[in-house]
Computed example of a mutant assay.
Amino acid sequence: MFGEILMRLRKQKKLTQEELASVLGVARTTYSSYEQNRRMPDAEIQNKIADYFNVSLDYLHGRQEKDNDGIAFFDYDDLDETDLAKIEGYIEALRQQKKDAERFKKEKK
């Protein structure tokens, strides 16, 4: 499970294994073994991964379904850039609606 989550996070950021391995200070082959669940990174590397992606260790280990922003993870692999932009736009529109509703409530008082 750890490896699958790690791969999803990396792909969401559009990073290669080589790029993320460099950030973590490990060889690409070592990093690859993490994604393939052949090897588990030590505590220091796990903390670096969690910090880099702004997720909890529980999230990395599949014990929590949401990241630190409270957003549930979805599999975006089959979506293109246009689809992702639409999703981001929709999320922003929902946030704006919420802000507007709160402001309207305050103005009514």
Rank of each mutant, 00 (worst) to 15 (best):
A101P: 04
G3R: 05
E81S: 13
D67R: 02
D83I: 07
T16D: 00
E92F: 09
K98V: 05
D83A: 14
K106Y: 07
K105F: 03
Y52H: 13
Y90L: 15
L79P: 13
S22I: 14
D67P: 00
G70I: 00
R103E: 07
R103Y: 07
L94F: 03
I71V: 13
Q97G: 12
R103P: 00
Y90H: 13
Q96S: 12
E88A: 14
R38A: 08
Y34A: 01
Q97Y: 11
F73Q: 13
R8S: 05
Y90R: 09
A101E: 08
R39E: 11
A50M: 02
E81G: 06
F104G: 00
Y76L: 15
T30V: 05
N54W: 10
T16G: 04
I5T: 12
R8G: 01
S32K: 14
D80C: 03
E18L: 12
I45D: 04
E35N: 12
D83K: 14
L84W: 06
R28S: 09
Q17L: 10
F74G: 09
Q97T: 09
K106M: 09
D67N: 03
L79R: 15
M40V: 15
E102A: 10
V26P: 00
K13H: 14
I91E: 06
D69F: 13
Q97D: 13
D67A: 00
R95S: 06
P41Q: 12
K66R: 09
Q36K: 15
T29Q: 12
K98D: 10
K48A: 03
S32L: 12
G3M: 06
Q96F: 06
L20H: 06
A72L: 08
A50E: 01
Y31E: 06
E92V: 10
T29P: 01
I87P: 01
T16N: 02
H61A: 11
E44P: 08
V55S: 00
L20W: 03
E65G: 07
K11L: 04
R103A: 14
D80I: 02
Q12S: 10
D51G: 12
T82L: 12
D80E: 03
Y31H: 12
D51V: 11
R39D: 08
D100H: 01
D42H: 10
I71F: 06
L15T: 00
G3K: 05
E88V: 09
S33L: 14
E107L: 11
F104T: 04
A101V: 08
K106N: 07
K98M: 07
K108L: 02
K66S: 10
R8P: 00
Y59W: 02
F73E: 13
D77M: 11
G62W: 08
Y59R: 01
M1V: 13
E107I: 04
M40Q: 15
F53L: 09
M1S: 13
L84T: 08
H61V: 07
Q64H: 11
R10A: 02
I71P: 01
Q97M: 14
G62M: 09
